[in-house]
Simulated scan of single mutants.
Amino acid sequence: AMPALHLLGTGAAISDAHRTTTMLAVSDDASPSNTLVVDCGGDVLQRLQACGRAIDDVDGLLVTHAHMDHTSGFPLFMEKIWLDGRDRPIPVCGIEPALAQVRRTWDAFAPVHEGWEDIPPINWHKVPHEQGARLWTQAPWTVTVTPVDHGDTANVGLRVEHADADGVLAYSCDTAPTSSVVDLAEGADVLVHEANGVGDGHSTAAGAAEVAAEAGVDRLLLVHLPPGDKSNALREARQVFPHTDLGEELGTYGW
């Protein structure tokens, strides 16, 4: 079984015209129905379909933090899985502040969906905001979280391990460079790290590369990208960690 990473979106809240908000998925070619989606700050299921996966492949939704570009698409996510005929529950997993915001977006549409029949039940799964908390344990995935540095906003990065492929994927989420992500990503096959640029709770490309080098990962993919020319930022990052690339919108990567 080969795990795949799908970059459903690679942009910051505002980015290049061809990039939407940063959202990810992991899937398994041996069993597509084990797909996990990370964040929903847009039409995440359309992006998943664009990567060749079906709406019904989604096994769970993982939410990292409460910001709009990571949560605001949740009511549309629910409408789509309902229209697609899902009858099994949908697990929605995250730290409490993230889940609370997702729930508020859904409740805002209560006058619309209160008459709908057979909406899939939502299984809310709250995890502590602490290093090593297990967000997902259902085979083939084990997903653990670690708190990251996103200013005043509670947020977590993710470490995703695949039971059969001996593969490890790390995702920084939105953060300034921090030792917690070095620990999270140690020895990973792929680190997906934000490169929003200078600012509170964010990283430059070179800052992300320093984390990748310290963690000893095989490959660095930069996401949460700002608009405009990124060639200088990429060059600076590669001076620190040569195996660095800008995340490709709708790109699929084996790990």
Rank of each mutant, 00 (worst) to 15 (best):
Q138T: 15
T146L: 06
L158N: 01
V143R: 01
L169M: 07
L184F: 10
E161S: 11
V148F: 04
D149E: 15
G167W: 06
A139R: 11
D152G: 08
D183C: 08
V156M: 09
L158S: 06
T178I: 13
T146Q: 12
V156A: 08
R159Q: 08
D174Q: 13
G157V: 03
T137S: 15
A139K: 12
A165F: 00
L184N: 02
V143Y: 10
D183R: 12
R159N: 06
V168P: 02
R159P: 00
T175V: 10
S172W: 04
D164A: 13
T153P: 01
G151F: 09
E186V: 04
S180V: 03
V160G: 02
S172K: 05
L158C: 08
A185M: 08
T144N: 02
A163M: 12
N155E: 09
V181Y: 09
L169V: 05
T144W: 02
D183W: 05
D166T: 09
L169A: 02
D164S: 09
Q138A: 14
P177W: 09
P177V: 07
T175P: 03
R159H: 06
V148E: 03
T175E: 08
R159S: 06
S180N: 12
V148H: 04
D149T: 14
S180P: 13
V143C: 10
R159F: 05
V168S: 05
E186K: 14
P147Q: 09
G151T: 11
E186W: 10
C173W: 02
S180Y: 06
H150C: 11
D166K: 14
S179D: 15
E161P: 00
A163P: 02
V182H: 03
D149H: 10
P140L: 00
L184G: 06
V160I: 15
D166C: 13
T137G: 15
H162R: 08
L158P: 00
C173Q: 12
D164R: 07
D152A: 13
W141I: 00
V160R: 03
D183L: 08
G151Q: 07
D174G: 08
T146E: 14
S172Y: 07
V182Y: 05
T146I: 02
A185I: 03
A154N: 05
T137M: 13
Y171G: 04
T142I: 10
D166R: 14
A163W: 04
A185S: 10
H150W: 03
Y171W: 15
Y171F: 15
V156S: 05
A185P: 00
W141R: 00
Q138S: 13
H150T: 00
T144Y: 02
L169W: 05
T153F: 12
A170N: 02
A176T: 12
V168W: 02
V181T: 14
V160E: 04
A165Q: 05
R159A: 07
P147Y: 03
